[in-house]
């Protein structure tokens, strides 16, 4: 009988989605917690003359582990360009990147021995914290925002959104032909309104104070045909701005995370060099 029964489908990887945070039921989170617990226990139990700091044997161990971790974490930038599956899948790698990166908050802070001063050592620590904070932000927005990103597009693709704007502009230009020169100037400014010209702050806030399109709508109340097109353009602009805002929120952390990572590598080089230079 058993030979004739229908074999059950085995749900392999990919059949059900498991995010990079939960990868292999939090395998790397457990590793990170073990690392932190070991470091904290060592900090509490190992007897050092005076106070803990980076220069005790335990401090050197923590520092070495931390710097190797940082170098490995940086390699994600290289590794992510090759997407693979299996034991060392990119997902597993990313999961380890996140969890081990978070464990650095504990490891490197214990390495400092809570001594902070205006020096190159604290600079390296501070840069590391900024990198980690930006990464935490990145995880948060990656978890929260993608659905909103899809919703903000409506049913349109991005090129369609741009195209719709252009078409509205053409309609507006045609509709505005009978207008007086002063009124035409209002429409012209509305035509010139480019949501993509907004800088970082405008994109992140999604706001458009003194929108020329809005102004034109307010001023041209008599011109129904033009106002109707203007209203449609205002709606399209708002949609584009929502989409831009979510994209900006999703992307902005990388503009902190990546450059500061390299600043951190330089600061680490300075930190390690300074220790051995004045050995």
């Amino acid at each position: 009988m058993s030979a004739r029964s229908i074999p059950r489908t085995t749900l392999g990887e990919g059949a059900s989605h498991e995010g990079f945070l939960r990868h292999k039921s939090f395998r790397w989170a457990k590793v990170a917690i073990l690392l932190c617990a070991g470091a904290i226990a060592g900090y509490a139990l190992i007897d050092v003359p005076g106070r803990h700091y980076g220069g005790t044997p335990f401090g050197y161990v923590l520092g070495t582990v931390s710097v190797l971790l940082i170098l490995w974490l940086t390699m994600l930038g290289v590794r992510k360009r090759a997407m693979t599956r299996g034991r060392w899948s990119l997902k597993g790698w990313t999961s380890a990147h996140v969890w081990l990166g978070l464990s650095l908050v504990v490891l490197a802070t214990l390495h400092t021995g809570f001594r902070f001063a205006p020096d190159v050592h604290t600079l390296a620590w501070a840069l590391m914290l900024l990198v980690i904070l930006s990464g935490v932000y990145g995880i948060a927005v990656y978890a929260a925002l993608p659905p909103a990103l899809g919703d903000s597009r409506g049913e349109l693709t991005r090129p369609q959104m741009v195209d719709a704007l252009a078409k509205l502009d053409a309609q507006l230009e045609a509709a505005a032909q009978p207008l007086s020169h002063g009124q035409a100037a209002l429409v012209r400014r509305a035509l010139a309104e480019d949501p993509f010209a907004a800088g970082l702050v405008r994109r992140l806030s999604g706001s458009a104070p003194r929108s020329p399109t809005r102004r034109a709508i307010d001023r041209l109340q008599g011109e129904t045909a033009v106002v109707a097109v203007l209203e449609r353009k205002a709606a399209a602009l708002a949609q584009v701005r929502r989409h831009l805002r979510i994209r900006a929120l999703l992307e902005v952390w990388l503009y902190v995370h990546v450059p500061l990572t390299f600043a951190l590598l330089a600061a680490l080089a300075a930190h390690i060099l300074s220790v051995f230079f004045y050995w």
Partner: peptide, 21 residues
């Protein structure tokens, strides 16, 4: 739609900051 046109490139910023440090 991306931030690339409104921000200096990540690579350029990385180089700049690293060299500064």
């Amino acid at each position: 739609f991306s931030l690339a046109p409104v921000l200096p490139g990540k690579r350029a910023m990385a180089w700049l900051l690293a060299l500064l440090v």
